[in-house]
Amino acid sequence: MDMKKSEVLQGTLDLMILKTLHALGPLHGFGIARRIEQVSRDVLQLNEGTVYTSLLRLQQQGWIAAEWGTSENNRKAKFYSITKRGQKQLEVEAENWERISDVIGRVLRLEAEE
């Protein structure tokens, strides 16, 4: 079996974006994509376009806000930033994620021991 990159789990991209914006402050789409690429160290396979779908979804939920600004190379770009509601949601989701990954990790270990 060849080394396929893992696909991003449904819903996890939202969490990653929220966390990225929380950590780095306002960013444009390209910046977010780069950051995720960097952090995941090429383990995750990401259609960068899906970032925008995720961004729109987050905006609709009111967790992030968008604003037009100027990018590093002086071009018009849309900057996304996390809102107060988004921060709260991030806490909830992060906690949730940890609980689940903890459970899954335990289950997997259990199997390995047997």
């Binding site: 444009h28 789409g29 390209f30 994509a33 780069r34 960068e48 376009g49 925008y52 990018s71 071009r75 018009k76 770009a77 849309k78």
Partner: peptide, 17 residues
């Protein structure tokens, strides 16, 4: 139009990279 601009910008940045 805005969204298309955003996508174009992204593609260009990516290509430059």
């Amino acid at each position: 139009g805005e969204f298309d601009d955003e996508v174009q910008e992204h593609l260009q940045l990516l290509a430059e990279k």
